[in-house]
Nucleic acid binder design. Structure first.
Lengths: 332, 332
DNA sequence: AATCATCGCGCAAACGTTTGCACAGGCCTG
DNA sequence: CAGGCCTGTGCAAACGTTTGCGCGATGATT
């Protein structure tokens, strides 16, 4: 392995100069900088990152913590973040919390151990507060939150525009002439789901409808719960559902079909997330698309700009987009 | 940040002893080991990984390189690998090659820079040989390949049983009474696809059918190409298709539907990968399931066992599993 | 011409951990 | 009882990079 000392010897300068040259310091002559980088290339030099990290007190690595990596939303977000970070010379360490608070704490400790320059995370559903995040990271570690965020932790937050997304989805159902629109909702403790709930409610009241708590089903964003919720909703007179998730919306489709209702004629459905399957199933399902890759990109960019002292990134809201498909399109 | 020296001072011993105690060396008294670990816990010590890596010459990090992280197969594999590696005290650095040879080389360089203990990878489709892998990694770096492997690189290889998977899928179509079975195939250069092709061929010849190159469509594992391939296949008299990918199989479904054929009565289809959507679409699609999470686990385990000098892991073949659904089930 | 800022580079320490070697004391063996 | 072995710990160097400080030389300013 070739080191900066080797380069220094080959050029008759000191390691200090080589280090500065490679770092692009203005305090080294252009000609030597050129000589150094040429020689480095020739000798096939690669920086010893651990040594650099040790000396600098932090590494060129950014940690990303997500509940699960094998979910389309998170893997796409990571993909986007990784692409941007690589462009800036950073690598990424991935950790999964498995929606588990203890695992999340472990991940934070690991990342601190590795002296990461920053952490990009979307917290586990079982993490109620963000205290552990601050406790287990150095105070100079940049923290970027995305999707699931704790307001009380300062720093960049990249989120979906859940409110307007849900608003549009619900509004669309009303426009299509559906009379009584239920809601399959998520965890009450998660901000993202709360915002979707608010968007749903506001769309109703804006259009002169009443909000009826009997047809709002919390904690129901898995297929099976969506199925059950939809059956109840139909019993209670609903002719449409806005679901805060696509899987639960799929359950709702099955419930409606099972009860002999025609979609979209008798029953309308709009989901959320625009999972791949929504465009393939029969009928194809309307859904509110999020843009995970873009969210990942934004999160990484927020990290990069946070690097410069002074530059503050606040909350970035990424628009969602209603994609109308067969399941809710009654009037063509 | 508390260091081993801090612990040493607090206990009246030297850093050497603390280091050895924490490493579980047998050369330190049980009582001191206990005292050290208690004190470490009390003071909230976390090892400085960069320092450790610098001294040891390698880190507790394993690099994983995949074409794209936001594909179900790879993200699940990573998930499985990450889980196992974490249990053994390793972190993972993720790199994407974007199917691009140059990016793959960059990733290898990055990982070497970080002095990773090992690399788990599935190479980019544009990497024809594995030379760059050996060139850009230290010779003591453990290399574990999965899914897409270069035979010429020694070390563990974790692969799907592509041959038998494809064999079963094709065999099943024959059993269901389909007369002329086409094949939507992948890159000729990729071993995995080649094995699927061989499985398809062998199933035909084993059952006394002839292999007809006119109904084998290479490089067609995306939806659109699958669609086109299927149209041609139908023109050429096929009443069934085995596809080496699910997306291309989906294209085939659309092609058949578009030509007014009933599935599975007039036309049978079996895909590969068991993507989530196959169980949702109409008709549901038969597919040959792979087990990416398990493959990831095996890859990580292979890395762990390779750590012990002498222990050699060869090729691990993970079974695939035919999942029969509506698209190929003519005889009930 | 004297003073001073600037430029370009070298010196040397420091980051925290690991590990080969040395060594003191206790035990065992012959 | 002498010699040797084992146990448990300390000493000190090393890993490769970065960076504050210092210093000579060059050019600009008074």
């Amino acid at each position: 392995m070739v080191t900066i000392s080797d380069i220094a010897k080959a050029l008759g300068v000191t390691p200090s100069t080589v280090s500065r040259a490679l770092a692009g310091s203005p305090r080294v002559k252009d000609s030597t900088r050129k000589a150094v980088s040429d020689m480095a290339a020739e000798m096939g030099y690669e920086r010893n990152e651990p040594a650099s990290s040790l000396r600098k007190g932090h590494s060129n690595v950014v940690g990303i913590i997500v509940p699960r990596i094998n979910r389309a939303f998170f893997s796409s977000a990571i993909s986007g973040a990784e692409t941007v970070l690589n462009e800036h010379g950073y690598s990424v360490i991935i950790c999964q919390s498995h929606e588990n608070h203890e695992d999340e704490v472990k991940a934070l400790k690991t990342l601190r151990s590795n002296r990461v320059a920053g952490v990009i995370l979307s917290h586990a559903s079982s993490s109620i507060t963000g205290d552990h995040i601050l406790e287990n990271l150095g105070q100079d570690t940049i923290i970027v939150q995305f999707d699931r965020v704790f307001k009380e932790i300062s720093g960049p937050k990249i989120v979906n525009d859940n409110f307007h997304g849900a608003y549009e989805g619900t509004h669309h159902l009303i426009e299509q002439g559906y009379k009584r629109i239920g809601n399959i909702a998520g965890y009450k403790g998660t901000l993202a789901y709360l915002d979707r709930l608010k968007g749903y409610m506001r769309a109703l009241t804006d259009m002169g409808r009443e909000v009826d708590d009997d047809i709002i089903f919390y904690d129901s964003i898995v297929e099976k719960k969506g199925y059950e919720a939809a059956k109840l909703a139909i019993e209670r007179g609903c002719d449409a559902i806005y679901s805060a998730g696509d899987f639960s919306a799929l359950g709702a489709v099955e419930a409606a079909k099972g009860l002999g209702l025609r979609i979209p004629e008798d029953f309308g459905i709009v989901g959320t997330a625009n999972e791949y399957f929504t465009s393939i199933m029969t009928p194809t399902m309307s859904s509110i698309a999020q843009h995970p890759y873009e969210i990942g990109r934004r999160a990484a960019q927020a990290f990069i700009t946070s690097l410069k002292p002074g530059a503050e990134v606040g909350e970035v809201v990424v628009p969602m987009e209603l994609i109308v498909r067969e399941s809710s399109l009654r009037k063509k």
